[in-house]
């Protein structure tokens, strides 16, 4: 007997509640599928766009060791993009379609990557703050209800925590360096701090997608909960650097056992999402250019593979004929 959608939905929620993983072939509510496609592809795009601001400094890294670390890091981000695109593809969307959505501006990516990398210290600040914020967002995703997404995140998280440590170590070196290096370090922290806080998304009372995502266990903590965790973590770590966070309202609250922090500039957040960040156009143009410039390469690869297939098929049938005769 055909099960009604209602029954399926109840069963689905029951499985989610029991912490069973939902797999691509399982029945799922259409909205669940769409939410995941949106979230995973956005996440994949963020990894790929995220290669650009750091990629900027590969050719200018100040030592061969730092260059190797940075190059490997940016390559890791490409790998993250790859796992995530693959996870999204299990939901019935192709990578080309996702690219198309990115290039047309329909799909979003993390706004943080629309800020410029102006000095070497930005490589440290991004690793420490941006990868640091990403980890807090992503650790709960290792247990997210959709199996392929959860499994991709396990691999990603391992590498992200490595990136954060490397970023911190890069800043630590600067903080112990010359006056110029310490200034560089503080300046980078000043510029990346607020945008990092924005990475956790709008406040809970203004976050439209949160409630359902929590119910489906795609999300497990609210934006504000994660943001608070991040502030608490960074407010402690910065002491080791001997630097300060650019927030006069930041202070320990004995009662809540958390750090209080100042009001985020939500107008800036909105503007950057709408495309008015300092590098929105450049980032998207760089991706579109790479895609357009690569078209002839992809065409040639396809044409060549097709030729080889035909040759193989011919050889096979020839083989059969000779065997039969």
């Amino acid at each position: 007997m055909e099960q009604t959608t209602n029954q399926l939905q109840v069963q689905f929620q029951k499985r989610v509640d029991e912490e069973q993983k939902i797999e691509p072939r399982d029945w799922m509510p259409e909205k669940y599928r769409q939410t995941l496609i949106r979230q995973i592809s956005q996440h994949a795009h963020s990894e790929i766009i995220g290669m650009l601001p750091e990629g900027n400094w590969i050719t200018r890294a100040p030592s061969l060791r730092r260059k190797a670390i940075l190059l490997a890091k940016v390559q890791d981000e490409a790998g993250h993009g790859l796992y995530l695109y693959s996870a999204a593809e299990t939901l019935g969307i192709s990578r080309d379609e996702m690219y198309e959505q990115l290039h047309s501006g329909k799909a979003k990516y993390s706004s943080i990557f629309n800020y410029p990398t102006l000095s070497w210290a930005d490589m440290g600040a991004i690793g420490w703050l941006v990868d640091g914020a990403a980890i807090l967002n992503q650790i709960p995703l290792c247990r997210t209800s959709f199996g392929p997404y959860a499994r991709a995140m396990v691999r990603v998280c391992k590498e992200e925590s490595f990136h954060q440590r490397q970023g911190f170590e890069c800043l630590l070196q600067l903080s112990k360096g010359s006056e110029v290096q310490r200034q560089m370090c503080q300046d980078a922290i000043n510029r990346w701090w607020w945008p990092s806080l924005m990475m956790f998304g709008p406040k809970d009372d203004e976050s439209p997608n949160s409630k359902l995502s929590m119910q489906w266990k795609i999300k497990r903590f609210t934006n504000d909960e994660l943001r608070q965790k991040f502030v608490d973590m960074i407010a402690e770590q910065i002491k080791v650097l001997g630097m300060v966070l650019p927030d006069p309202d930041l202070k320990w609250n004995e009662q809540t056992k958390h750090y209080d922090y100042g009001e985020i500039n939500w107008e800036e957040f909105k503007q950057v999402i709408q495309g008015n960040g300092p590098c929105n156009k450049e980032r998207l143009e760089a991706r579109k250019k790479a895609w357009a410039d690569g078209a002839w390469v992809r065409d040639a690869a396809t044409a060549y593979a097709a030729k080889k297939d035909i040759q193989k098929a011919k050889a096979n049938s020839l083989n059969k004929e000779t065997q039969q005769s």
Binding site: M51, L64, V74, Q75, G81, A290
Partner: peptide, 29 residues
């Protein structure tokens, strides 16, 4: 080769060429 990182025509090939750049950097070092 490292100048291609983030700008390659195919994501897998971007990764492959960056890998080569990393190998070469390791050899140089």
């Amino acid at each position: 080769n490292s100048q291609w990182c983030g700008h390659g025509p195919i994501l897998e090939q971007d990764i492959a060429l960056t890998n080569i750049a990393l190998d070469q950097l390791g050899q140089a070092r």
